[in-house]
Design a protein around this nucleic acid. Structure first.
Lengths: 143, 143
DNA sequence: CTCTGTGCAAAACCTTTGCAGACTC
DNA sequence: GAGTCTGCAAAGGTTTTGCACAGAG
């Protein structure tokens, strides 16, 4: 998702598009990795000093509740974010460099139906992530 | 996994089996829900007062690194724990009451192979959870 | 202009660490 | 007994909140 379309989406929902929000979106968007709030904050210091950590938190909450960001769970922390390609998708995360590759088709319908039948649950969401090492980290040995 | 076998497992690894650890294991084990460290701490207060929150944290770390506990990610917090049935398995979590049902066969080999081929990643782990409402919460309307 | 957003400071949590004494094996 | 484990206190982080001012629409 481009930062432009995120900006448009925000406007559509009646939120203001401030330079701070734009900067935060840019930082997340330019990264191939998933970023924690402090990651984002420290990257902002270089390019857009003066933005407060509080603003980062508030912007992340806003973007997340609008469905414009998604979380990555696998790995060390559970609070790291990515811009969302839009729609249903899942992540393949590199444990070396943190790079995230998305994929969309998760082939879980059969399993989901079976679980519904067996348990009586009503299922409305699932979380699927793979973790491993990306091709570069495998070559470099380190990481 | 029974608390007895967890205790045995601990001993096998050379850890001491203190009353505090036993109490913490019991509390987690007796719950159908996934529990956060403070959940566990507050349940301990009733039955085993005097145990410190610090001990809860240390015991959770110990149990987790021994593979005797596992985390639940979907939902509000990412730090909630369950005793582990042992071996590869996944969770189906009720958003109403927090109840967790395990299942083992995740049918992800095909998908995993495809991702390996397409991305060059080496995949060593995956996280799969379903969330919904259990049969009781559906009946009760509330939750 | 209005009303949302920001930054600062501080509060509220959550989690980890250091240390002396207690307890398991 | 030896060495791990616990509890307390305190430190270190992270996240949230209150409030006055600034800035987007």
């Amino acid at each position: 998702m481009t930062s432009k379309s995120i900006a448009a989406e925000l406007r559509k929902r009646g939120f203001k598009l401030t330079p701070q929000r734009r900067a935060i979106i840019d930082v997340i968007n330019e990264s191939e990795e998933h970023l924690t709030p402090s990651d984002i904050y420290s990257r902002l210091q270089h390019k857009y000093p003066g933005i407060g950590l509080v603003t980062v938190y508030r912007t992340l909450e806003l973007l997340e509740s609008s469905g414009l960001l998604c979380e990555v769970h696998i790995g060390d922390t559970c609070r790291s974010y990515l811009t969302r390609p839009g729609g249903h998708h899942h992540h393949l995360v590199c444990r070396g460099c943190g790079k995230v590759v998305d994929f969309t088709d998760c082939e879980l319908d059969g399993l989901e139906n079976r679980l519904v039948n067996e348990t009586g649950f009503e299922i409305d969401r699932h979380l699927l992530e793979f973790m491993g090492r990306c091709i570069n980290c495998r070559k470099n040995k380190k990481n």
